[in-house]
């Protein structure tokens, strides 16, 4: 990933990063020294319920920011909104967000991705009936062969195709998927699909990657390697924003944590400070803050049922919206 040279000195050094963020106020909506993403006044209503109501948020360039919050806090909806997959109810009424200086208020999902902000999905969208390699090659930007005028004439895109394939092989190798390249994506395990989706997103050479619950449904062995990959992306100079509910993960790899509850941002700060925050404990940890939330086994039945319900709900919403 040598193209990612937006890296400023010190991104690979934890101390330097901490130093950089140490001056930042630990309040919701605080200003960052070098924000890559700014969000203002985004609201989204579903019926009478306010699902997302974010007044101001800045995401610092070149670090890992975690977006956490209890289920139903509106994290995924917020993701959908800023990546153009959903439209804020407040659109045209003061909603404004910008990525790398470019306004995204009216930008479609594909243009957001083209601008360099690429996302993955909570329910992995591996293209099941295509091979792993085809999945990867779809990710590459600016392919001449994707224009209808050139498509029929192979010599016009053969060279580029070779380069894209080479790049895809490198990335697959990095994510330990190279032997699977001719398999259908549908035959991969859940964790492998997550990896594939992440690798595919990287094919677009993004400057910021947004991961929606990258660890959900991944076995513990693979979780470690996923975390490693995320960190190495950051060390390459990429900005990472990810949604997660597992506290351990957040604690270990994130440089900055944003907490959402009931659609609002309730706290910001480094992982350890945020977790001690009273507002966070009230909103997010609730009655369970005595226990270790990183351990799923401790979730009682009620919480498990609630989780299940939310997953079902999101799945259904997705089915209703996108599938056909």
């Amino acid at each position: 990933m040598s193209e990612q040279t937006t890296a400023t000195a010190g991104h690979a050094d934890p101390a330097a990063r901490r130093q950089m963020m140490s001056q930042v106020d630990r309040i919701p909506g605080s200003a960052k020294p070098d924000p890559i993403l700014r969000v203002d006044h985004i609201q989204r209503r579903f019926g009478g319920m306010m699902a997302v109501d974010v007044e101001h948020l800045e995401v610092q360039r070149g670090i890992i920011t975690a977006l956490i919050g209890p289920n139903g806090a509106g994290k995924t909806t917020f993701f959908n909104l800023i990546t153009g997959f959903d439209r804020p109810t407040s659109a045209g009424k003061g909603a404004h967000w910008a990525f790398d200086g470019a306004t995204l208020d009216k930008t479609s999902a594909s243009s957001v991705a083209k601008a360099g902000m690429v996302r993955t999905f909570q329910l992995t969208k591996a293209l099941s009936r295509m091979t792993v390699m085809d999945n990867m090659m779809l990710g590459a930007k600016d392919q001449g062969g994707e224009s209808l005028a050139k498509a029929m004439f192979r010599p016009l895109w053969r060279q580029q195709e070779r380069e894209v394939r080479h790049k895809a092989e490198e990335l697959l190798d990095r994510f330990k998927l190279l032997e699977k390249r001719d398999d259908y994506a549908g035959s991969l395990s859940g964790g492998q699909r997550k990896l594939l989706e992440m690798a595919r997103a990287l094919m677009t050479d993004p400057s910021m990657i947004m991961l929606d619950e990258p660890m959900a449904g991944v076995n513990p062995a693979l979780t470690q390697s996923l975390l490693g990959h995320i960190q190495s992306l950051r060390d390459d100079g990429m900005t990472v924003l990810f949604v997660e509910h597992d506290m351990h993960v957040v604690q270990h790899i994130s440089d900055w944590v944003v907490v959402m509850a009931e659609g609002r941002i309730v706290a910001e700060g480094p992982a350890d400070t945020v977790m001690a925050d009273k507002a966070v404990i009230d909103a997010y940890l609730g009655a369970h803050h005595e226990t270790d939330l990183g351990d799923d086994a401790l979730l009682d039945e009620g919480v498990a049922a609630a989780l299940e319900l939310e997953v079902a709900e999101e799945e259904a919403a997705r089915n209703q919206e996108g599938e056909r």
């Binding site: 299940e308 319900l309 079902a312 709900e313 799945e315 259904a316 919403a317 089915n319 209703q320």
Partner: peptide, 9 residues
């Protein structure tokens, strides 16, 4: 409205 949710409830 939502078959999955209905089934879950």
């Amino acid at each position: 409205d939502n078959p999955a949710l209905a089934a879950a409830s």
